[in-house]
């Protein structure tokens, strides 16, 4: 546990001192501050658009952070040979991997909280500009934010798995982006092939491929609660519960696989 904590805090310090992340955080902040201004362009749905824009901006920021941290965190240690110095100490590889991942996950959730504070200000400001018939539901907005955080923690686990598999940077980046795009689309495709017209339009082989991808790849669209937040719809608590269980199981499975591969990895 001691070693896990040490790797966790070292990774968190590395993230805190990363200048690229500072620049990206600054750009994100600017994006959030522009939310009330851009929302004005919608004459009637200022509040709804502000919520949607805010959650989309948060999602984009978390996407960039999760890919960067998930891919580069371990890859950089291997590439710059830091890992040789670290793993020659009595640190178990599993503790190293989980310490890294936990720091990334915590940072993503910290980003969610920080952006939540900023979001509170920007959405309140935008909502006062044009009174909506729908009241702002903060529990719905915070649920959407937390689910977004969970989604990108899962993506970081995907990135981490790729970064322990490959020694080059190409596979982790393209693989993570590819899985993210495919995992975001499978839900829609699955529903399409189960609809009458979809079953006719797509060949049987294509339908099997889509079904296989739907069951194998992480389903990122399951974490999307933007509509519930923007239009204050009643939250489906049972669906949220199952999604959280799905997230826990899938993330644990990815980390388990990454841990087995990392245990066998050689650092020449």
């Amino acid at each position: 546990m001691q070693h896990f904590k040490l790797i966790f805090s070292a990774t968190f310090v590395a993230i805190k001192r990363d200048r690229l992340l500072h620049a990206l955080a600054g750009a994100s902040l600017l994006l959030f501050l522009l939310v009330p201004v851009i929302s004005m362009f919608s004459m009637r749905q200022v509040q709804e658009l502000a919520i949607t824009l805010f959650l989309s901006s948060l999602s984009f920021t978390l996407l960039i952070f999760s890919i960067l941290l998930g891919v580069f965190s371990i890859w950089k240690d291997i590439e710059k040979r830091y890992i040789i110095s670290v793993l020659s100490m009595p640190i178990k590889r599993r503790d190293y991997l989980l310490g890294k991942f936990s720091a990334i996950a915590l940072f993503l959730m910290f980003t969610v909280c920080l952006m939540g504070i900023i979001g509170y200000g920007t959405i309140t400001f935008a909502a006062h500009q044009y009174q909506s018939e729908i009241p702002v539901s903060w529990p719905n907005i915070f649920t959407a934010m937390l689910m977004s955080g969970a989604k990108y923690i899962l993506l970081a686990a995907v990135a981490l798995l790729f970064s322990v598999i490959s020694t080059s940077i190409f596979l982790p980046i393209t693989g993570t982006i590819g899985i993210f795009l495919a995992g975001s689309a499978t839900q829609g495709l699955y529903e399409y092939i189960n609809s009458g017209s979809g079953a006719q339009d797509i060949s049987l082989t294509g339908q099997y491929v889509i079904k296989a991808l739907y069951y194998l790849l992480p389903n990122f669209s399951a974490f999307d609660y933007q509509v519930y937040a923007a239009y204050t719809l009643a939250l489906p608590l049972d669906t949220i519960f199952y999604t959280v269980c799905y997230w826990l199981i899938y993330t644990s499975f990815l980390l388990f696989c990454a841990s087995i591969i990392f245990e066998k990895k050689e650092f020449r």
Binding site: Q2, R17, Y82, I84, S85, V86, S88
Partner: peptide
């Protein structure tokens, strides 16, 4: 590895830390 002091060939250490911070990290690892 608990009783080993190891110097790798062409060593590299976390460059976002200071020398004192890195030694503190090492000491705590041991």
């Amino acid at each position: 590895r608990r009783q080993i002091g190891y110097l790798p060939e062409n060593p590299a250490f976390y460059d976002f830390m200071t020398a004192r911070e890195y030694l503190s990290f090492t000491g705590k690892c041991f």
